[in-house]
Design a protein around this nucleic acid. Structure first.
Length: 269
DNA sequence: TCCTTATGTACAA
DNA sequence: TGTACCTAAGGAC
């Protein structure tokens, strides 16, 4: 599930359940055991998210840096915590709740400076209040790379993943193979504004829904989705199915080792 | 029970 | 461009 909205939601949920209190910190799987021992019994004071990176603040200088990658998952539950399975990389537990982290690409103890270096190499995040879309457009407008690839480049814009990429391009009728150079400022501003709205709703609902009210299954008297990615979408993982709007077959292609989905009629070059 | 796939990224060649 | 890494679910047998 991990696109930016997931990570921001996790930051909220970690804070809601653990901030301001002492936590038991363990690493049943073992790879984070040394750091867990250092943090065990200390207080989590805040959580932060930038793009797909999650940061948990313990004490004055220590942060746990978490990146879920493709497989990472986080599970919250109420106390008492069940015995952890042997894939739990990090468990926090307090008298009322526990949270398990499994399969992350990254789970490491870092300093303030190291955290800052991560912020510095990430592009603006539509979910962060300090984000400036014009810095992203500046790079896009000079690039001969496809807009589909640019949207996935975390240095350009942080937090967009394969689902939001496919869906936002569909919502704006933009062919994924158009280059950054061809994108107007107005088009970019519209994409950005839309991403802010979509991703905020993603945080709220903890899932990605991109279908406008007038195109929902109920509104169009069509069958509801069968996909299990967790939300209602126009094109993501709908290869060879009819487009909700024009009925043409949704296309798919490999682009930079990821699956791209788009409607060739609704998204003209 | 095995194989494929996945909302991601980093590094080698 | 290809491959490695981490995990779990779903589908094919």
């Amino acid at each position: 599930m991990p696109e930016g909205h997931t990570i921001h939601r996790l930051a909220e949920d970690y804070e809601a359940r653990f901030a301001g209190g002492i936590a038991q910190v363990t690493s049943p799987q073992g790879k984070f055991a040394d750091a867990a021992a250092l943090l065990d019994g200390t207080e989590l004071d805040s959580a932060d998210a930038h793009g797909k990176h999650l940061f948990l603040h313990f004490g004055a200088e220590d942060w746990i840096h978490i990146h879920l990658g493709l497989f990472g998952k986080v599970t919250f539950g109420d106390a008492p915590a069940p015995p952890p399975t042997d894939t739990v990389r990090l468990r926090l537990a307090n008298p009322t709740a526990y949270v398990d982290l499994r399969g992350p690409t990254t789970c490491a103890l870092i300093t303030d400076d190291e955290k800052q270096a991560i912020h510095d190499r990430l592009g603006p995040d539509p979910l962060r209040p300090d984000a400036d879309p014009s810095t992203a457009y500046h790079r896009i407008a000079r690039s001969r790379t496809t807009i589909a690839a640019l949207l996935m480049d975390q240095k350009i814009i942080a937090g967009v993943g394969n689902v939001y990429r496919a869906e936002v391009l569909f919502r704006h009728g933009i062919d994924p193979y158009r280059t950054g150079k061809d994108l107007t400022r107005a088009e970019w501003d519209a994409i950005w504004t839309d991403l802010v709205d979509l991703m905020r709703e993603g945080v709220r609902n903890n899932r990605i829904d991109t279908v406008r009210p007038e195109h929902t299954p109920e509104a169009m008297a069509r069958p509801p989705r069968v996909d299990d990615h967790g939300g209602e979408v126009y094109v993501y993982r709908r290869a060879h199915l009819p487009c909700h709007i024009c009925g043409d077959e949704i296309r798919t292609a490999d682009l930079a080792a990821r699956n791209l989905f788009w409607c060739p009629r609704c998204q003209q070059p």
